[in-house]
Design a protein around this nucleic acid. Structure first.
Lengths: 251, 251
DNA sequence: GACATTTGTTTGTATATCGCACAAAATGGC
DNA sequence: GCCATTTTGTGCGATATACAAACAAATGTC
């Protein structure tokens, strides 16, 4: 690609949108400039553009995003058959298991939820399509990493901020790589409260009809209700059944 | 705003993202150019920029969006307290009602789902945060329209494509405006299979602590199970209870 | 296979945008 | 209230981008 085939104004604008997040629902021009490392004048123009297009509100001081930006994410969700196709299978899976079931794909060092069927929520974690979790400590993240060539998985772990969310979180890259090899052999991953105390989950990779891993599905359960050691015996058959059905319908 | 405070390259790029959708998961340069009404060369540069940034994949012929674009929508969902605050109330509501409960806001002529607690799905409709429905024929859309000044609501109806999804769909702007007046008086809206045969729903507006309508919540039920005439008697008390609780916590 | 049509890419040039420097305004201590 | 600091707004030269038009490659048609 030639350098002139890159619209830097567009790239800068997207960076500005992403500057909004968890702890920053409202941004001033100067704040956004700091977060994006762009010139204030540039950020200002981007924010005013967003406001003009209705993607943001501006009260003269703070900018906030409007629901219109959901159109952008929705362009992916509705454009990609994956979430739509997976959803009913997930519903059925969640129903049979009596637990929440989710599907996700890898994006950099994180997994992104693309569909979810939730049972009555017991956990503090509140997930929905678009939600993100670090790949290294999530069951779906582990199987997705395990599906990559070792070098790539290793590279992603290097780029991840490996922090111990709970005393049980595995953070040593070597131990994690060993774990990935084990998962590659077993065909599934179990997480025992590595993300949040009291939460276990089990995941399997989902392949399309050509055998390429295109997503992961999982079942999450309260540790108090289902100990990690029992997760596989209890839910693996259901997951494998779903995985098999999906393989036939995913192109 | 001065004209020079508008980054048209950014605006064009966003338009290109939105060109992807339901029926267009994969776009060629020429297709995207037609959809966005932009020059092919311009669209090409936007798409190549998206690919370069990892928001799109390019196989030499077709462009497809990647899950990374969900970051953009997620920037809103996580930046805005509304969905996060509403979710647990919705879970509780759905649980008590034994039916799916949702929350949405208005964006142009459409409502956008910002949170949802679903029971076992019976309908063909598959909704998740970011999903959109036309406002004129959805229960939440009706209460949100009713909360606007008449002129504004009327303007939105004018801009809406009023089509009859089912034989029961109300499509006459005058009848719809009458309906809005009725809703304004009653404080709730019931939809009887106007969106899809077999689906009824009831919605109420949700106000923040200053009394401004910031969203709508609804309960959907199969018409076979709960006739439209019974919706209010059955679910209105639950909805009003939730609305009252939300009013106290929403700033 | 030749022709017409569509699509993708490149080029030149007029225009728009960037980043910088500076002015104006707001904010925060004290 | 005053000064220091931060933030916002603006003018300008340098640079990047859009548009139109032409070209090249692919695709479809007969």
């Amino acid at each position: 690609m030639r350098e002139s085939d890159f619209v830097s104004g567009f790239a800068r604008g997207l960076k500005v949108i992403e500057a909004f997040g968890e702890t920053r629902p409202r941004l001033t021009i100067a704040e956004a400039a700091k977060l994006t490392d762009l010139d204030r004048a540039t950020v200002r123009r981007c924010l005013l553009t967003l406001a003009d297009l209705g993607y943001a509100d501006y009260d003269g001081k703070f900018f906030t995003l409007t629901p219109k930006v959901l159109r952008l994410g929705h362009a992916y969700l509705s454009a990609t058959p994956l979430p739509l196709v997976i959803q009913p299978y997930l519903d059925q899976l969640s129903d049979k298991a009596g637990q929440s079931a989710s599907a996700s794909v890898l994006d950099g060092t994180e997994i992104v939820y693309i569909a979810r069927a939730s049972q009555k929520r017991v956990m503090s974690i509140n997930l929905s399509p678009g939600s993100r979790l670090p790949a290294y400590c999530a069951s779906m993240g582990r199987v997705l990493l395990a599906a990559l060539p070792e070098a790539e998985a290793s590279d992603i772990l290097d780029r991840s901020e490996l922090k111990a969310n709970t005393p049980l979180t595995k953070t040593d890259p070597n131990i994690l790589m060993d774990e990935l090899r084990r998962i590659r052999g077993d065909g599934y991953a179990v997480i025992d409260q590595e993300l949040e105390l009291g939460l276990c989950s089990i995941a399997v990779p989902v392949e399309n009809d050509r055998g390429r891993v295109v997503a992961a599905i999982n079942i999450g359960a309260p540790a108090a209700h289902v100990p990690a050691a029992e997760m596989a015996a209890r839910y693996l058959p259901l997951l494998l059944e779903t995985r098999k059905a999906l393989r036939l319908v995913l192109r």
